[in-house]
Amino acid sequence: MKIMKDKEMALVKEILAKLGASEEDQELVAEATVDADLKGFTSHGLGRFPQYLISIKAGTINLEDNIIIEKETPAIALINGNSGFGQAVSYKAMQIAIKKAKEVGIACVGVHNTNHFGVTGFYSDLALRENCIGLVLANTDPAIAPLGGKEALIGTNPLALGIPSDSYITVDMATSVTARGKIIESKRKGLDLPDGWALDENGNPTNDPEAALKGSILPFGGFKGYALSLLIEILTGPLVQAGYGHGVTGTASPDKDCTKGDLYVVIDPSKFGDFDEFKAHTEDFISQVRATGETVAIPGDLEVKRIAEAEANGVAIDEKLYEQLKGICDDLDIDIGSYVEE
């Protein structure tokens, strides 16, 4: 089974409309969900969407969301997301960061009291569209055990960084070997995990996704990934007045209040010098990189390829996800057959 881009947008929006979400939230959640699927991060697209509905029913996503700017300077803002959709809160936070960066050169916006927002790179892309550099950090429910420890304490803590250019230059990655969403997706599909991804609750290597979810995911690159995830935990926890360590809930437990934090950093290259010159030099460097070998890849190349393929052929939906979506649609009197193709 598969779903085409426009159909996926329409399906998500219709479901959210039936649940009482605002038109703005419908649009933003749909855009972020489709963006994840087109880029191949299916664990954060429709595959994660049923969790948002659990949160809505549990009241941990506030349909009457309205962000509150609690503190502000020309370059900094601290936002209370008021438990709104993570996608909507993050979009607004990034727009504030972009506006401030265009005024003073660099801006940093912290967010607390928000929700899971999909893929991190969706928000750094917003900065690229405005010819700005975008950096996005977030923390999550504990998933990584400190190096040498057995108990999960640190989140998979993703980061996304995008550079404006004629090429699509961006990285969107968890600081763990894999995102928790991929573990959840493997469990749904009944697939074993690759070696080296996770430990069970006793600290032993495991290929069982259920055991991994009870245990911990390994950081990428050993100490380097662990150190990076730990530092991001501080920048998106204590710094922005959000949860940290055991205090983070809601990203993997949709029926609990979400206590994660986010940090959005935007840099306007034009404040350093001529933007066209910056872009030309960046493209020259990318050309040098590509010239070093026929199979050389630039961060972002894979997403460009995946987007083109998904827009042409649609996004695959496995049987278990289809059944989840069908159950949601049946409850809301929506004909899923008008959206999903066999």
Rank of each mutant, 00 (worst) to 15 (best):
E311N: 15
S43K: 09
G118P: 04
M9V: 12
L239G: 02
S90E: 02
D330Q: 14
K224C: 09
S186E: 05
L63M: 12
L218Y: 09
A145Y: 05
D65W: 06
T175G: 03
F122R: 14
V266H: 04
D125V: 10
S270E: 12
S167I: 01
A308C: 01
I3W: 08
K7T: 08
G162F: 00
G261R: 06
K92L: 11
F278R: 00
I68D: 13
G190R: 10
S165Y: 04
D37S: 11
M94C: 06
E14H: 03
K102I: 06
D6V: 06
K189I: 14
V171D: 04
D274A: 10
Y322P: 07
S287P: 02
G337Q: 11
D35Q: 06
V136Y: 04
T120E: 07
A30E: 04
V34G: 00
H44C: 11
G134F: 10
A21T: 07
G314Q: 03
S22T: 14
I336W: 00
L193P: 00
I232K: 01
I336G: 10
A211D: 14
Y91P: 01
T282C: 08
S186G: 07
G155Y: 05
D200P: 12
K305S: 12
N157W: 03
K39E: 07
G84R: 02
V104A: 07
N204Y: 09
N80P: 13
Q51V: 08
T206L: 13
I234P: 01
A30L: 05
K326T: 13
L19S: 04
A32P: 01
G20D: 01
K100D: 05
G155M: 01
V109E: 05
T156P: 09
E23L: 06
P209L: 13
T282W: 02
L239N: 06
V34Q: 02
D141M: 11
S287T: 12
E309H: 12
P74S: 15
V29P: 05
P142M: 08
I61K: 04
F223C: 02
I67V: 15
Y226F: 15
A152Q: 09
N157V: 12
D208N: 15
A152S: 15
D262T: 03
P238S: 14
A160M: 10
K189S: 11
Y52F: 14
V340P: 01
I217V: 15
T249M: 04
G149C: 13
Y264I: 07
E24P: 00
L135I: 15
P238E: 08
K305M: 08
